[in-house]
Write a protein that binds this DNA or RNA. Structure first.
Ligand SMILES: [Zn+2]
Ligand SMILES: [Zn+2]
Ligand SMILES: [Zn+2]
Ligand SMILES: [Zn+2]
Lengths: 423, 423
DNA sequence: AAAGCAGGTCACCAGGTCAC
DNA sequence: GTGACCTGGTGACCTGCTTT
């Protein structure tokens, strides 16, 4: 007859339990605790908890209410509103039925009482959870703050781009003009704008330039507001995913449509016709945006946070674009639509790169990642490769290379210490 | 409500201890310890014991409680609930009176304290006991494994039946057909199908036949997967309870409904009308299941294990029956409903048997249980007889027989060595 | 020493109280 | 009926002593 007999003690076994089954080998009591800064909250009504009552962190009010409910086996009137009343500090006395229901749902029970001093182990756990909760909260707040001020955010992204990209419109303008004025065509051996000259003369020199622009993109990412606040894993995943997309867009300006050619660093041209696998595309701007794409389909730690950052950046881009192109309201939409193409192209490009890298892997690796001892990154595993066979370009994926691979530059960059060493 | 079940166990072990000082005969400290895997449990409440306090393995809580109780000679309020509260970790604080009672009952005492380091000898003993405990756990797992594979389990049970029963449908078919073709009626003197002929000619021969089918049932039980893994006591209790039920079902096929007669071993018939106490019933199959019935109401050691075996066997039976009778979904239900009737009939039949046995007890006993020296089985006591006056048929219950009774056959069968000696 | 327990300590909680 | 507050009991740890 007593109310608790009709309800199971654990109606809701904790939302985290059911989703992912992280193979809980250890019997961790799963402490579900809600915090507000430094104080524990009542799991029934959210008020400040006065302690651990009947097996649940709860306030004096809910404690007393539950005690009364089980002492005199009260049968409350069955709730007129569908038995789904929310129980908060301000309205907890509106519906006794739902309040008791909530008490039981969160696990209050006479069988769960715990007397005496709190075990040290659990105390530590609670403290740690609190720490974690507040620090992660502060962390996210910091990230949010960085993304809050739209003009400043924009300025910083633009600045980051200008500081790390050698191929901005302004910088290539001169070369481009020169090339157009007196075009000098050559037969390319390595059809890449990064090649100093159409004819591949020095593999080593190409590798150096290649590594250099890669560093530029990585540094750029590190300068995007909020990026440094992500976890190492997320940073790495994002970079792996977007690195070549960004690089591709950066070098788009070296593809001259009127001349129908690629401009090399030395100003010589490579006719599009003479290049076997031409990259047929028309891109418009050096954009930051592409970098945050593809996140949803990836295995990110803090997806939520990244998502919000993405959304925020997108909104900023929208604002800017709208201002700059009042004549074309759908411009951003067009911009977005180029992303899949970018992805496709980037992938195709990476295929070529893989071939090249396979041929010159040692050299390239040294140039790209530095020469120090490598730390072994956990590989993403076969299933990710299957999903996107060649989109990932991290050093760890150059299949032929042994288990070891050095990524000190990347690592250092992720840590936020490296700067672009050349302007 | 489970309190009683766990409570009863503690009351019994050392009735001598609790009254006054421990009458420790100095020899064997009697080690009553309960384990949970590798940890010793509190003998008062079952919580994890923190050590050997006041002469008993107990938890910090019970230790402190007992200390407080004897320091300030507290007189707790005399318990409102009949002084039989169960004392478990979750409810140990609900009744101080009963908690202290339990403390004393399990032997806590100021004089029983043992200081200093644990003697090596005892340490070894505890370890050994723990080993044993965990091995018994492994034992249960073995039993569970035997019951796991449903088809195999089923096959073994069926095989066991076929190997130990002389009255399967196939085997009696011929005799039955003959009986129907040319019925030969006789006036019975002992209305039992085991009687070779309607007229009781030789008590000795009947007794032999009787003992033989009993052996068949006992052997059948021994062949049921998992049965051999039960304790001697549980095996014996189960047999005592189900032996005649099973026997009854086995002989059902000798009751011919169309002829309205009992078929005797020699093929002669006994008209139902000519039998005074006819067994009016319609049973359908030779079933294994009936044997596991009635367990709940009995005082079994390992009730839980037996329960699980029962459930498992039942589930298997359900599966089989469902397969065989897709047209009748409620068939198992019907089957189950015949059990109370079976019980009633078995009881009635036993009444008759008791009369017969009383008359010929010496002979019968020799035939049934063999002739060797008897070991004295602990009798179930008067209260069980009251519950089910004559349901138990073990030799120990033939009241007139003195304290001694021989059960070598049963004992040997329980040990799993005997086989059916005739096919 | 090392191991192991009685006793003490005090952080903690169930239950009771009583203005509201 | 509610909940801030009080009171007595509880038990996780610690300390000091006893035994091996
Ligand atoms: Zn509350
Ligand atoms: Zn409600
Ligand atoms: Zn205890
Ligand atoms: Zn009691």
């Amino acid at each position: 007859m007593s109310p608790d007999s009709s309800y199971g003690r654990y109606e809701t076994p904790t939302p985290t339990d059911n989703m992912m089954g992280p193979v809980h080998t250890e019997r961790e009591p799963e402490l579900h605790i809600e915090f507000d800064g430094t104080t524990v909250l009542c799991r029934v009504c959210g008020d400040k908890a006065s302690g651990f009552h009947y097996g649940v962190h709860s306030c004096e009010g809910c404690k007393g209410f539950f005690r009364r409910s089980i002492q005199q086996k009260i049968q409350y009137r069955p709730c007129t509103k569908n038995q789904q009343c929310s129980i908060l500090r301000i309205n907890r006395n509106r519906c006794q039925y739902c309040r008791l229901k909530k008490c039981i749902a969160v696990g209050m029970s006479r069988d769960a009482v715990r007397f005496g001093r709190v075990p040290k182990r659990e105390k530590a756990r609670i403290l740690a959870a609190m720490q974690q909760s507040s620090s992660s909260r502060a962390h996210e707040q910091a990230a949010a703050a960085e993304l809050e001020d739209a003009p400043r955010l924009l300025a910083r992204v633009v600045r980051a781009h200008l500081d790390t990209c050698e191929f901005t419109r302004d910088r290539v303008a001169a070369m481009r003009a020169r090339a157009r004025d007196c075009p000098t065509y050559s037969q390319p051996t390595l059809a890449c704008p990064l090649n100093p000259a159409p004819e591949l003369q020095s593999e080593k020199e190409f590798s150096q330039r290649f590594a250099h622009v890669i560093r530029g993109v990585i540094d750029f990412a590190g300068l995007i507001p909020g990026f440094q606040l992500l976890t190492q894993d997320d940073k790495f995943t994002l970079l792996k995913s977007g690195l070549f997309d960004a690089l591709f867009v950066r070098l788009i300006c070296m593809f001259d449509a009127p001349l129908n050619s690629i401009i090399c660093l030395n100003g010589q041209l490579m006719k599009r016709d003479s290049i076997q696998s031409g990259a047929n595309a028309r891109f418009l701007v050096d954009s930051t945006f592409k970098f945050a794409e593809r996140m949803n389909s990836m295995n990110l730690r803090n997806v939520d946070l990244v998502e919000r950052m993405h959304a925020r950046l997108k909104a900023c881009l929208q604002t800017v674009v709208t201002q700059n192109r009042p004549d074309r309201p759908g411009f951003l939409r067009e911009l977005m639509d180029t992303l899949p193409d970018l992805r496709t192209l980037s992938t195709l490009h990476t295929e070529k790169l893989v071939v090249f890298r396979t041929e010159h892997k040692e050299l390239l690796r040294q140039q790209m990642w530095g020469e120090e001892e490598g730390c072994s990154w956990a590989d993403s595993g076969p299933e990710e490769s299957a999903r996107s066979p060649i989109a990932s370009v991290s050093s760890s994926e150059s299949g032929e290379v042994g288990g070891e691979c050095g990524t000190p530059l990347l690592a250092a960059t992720l840590a936020g210490r490296r700067r672009l060493d050349s302007r």
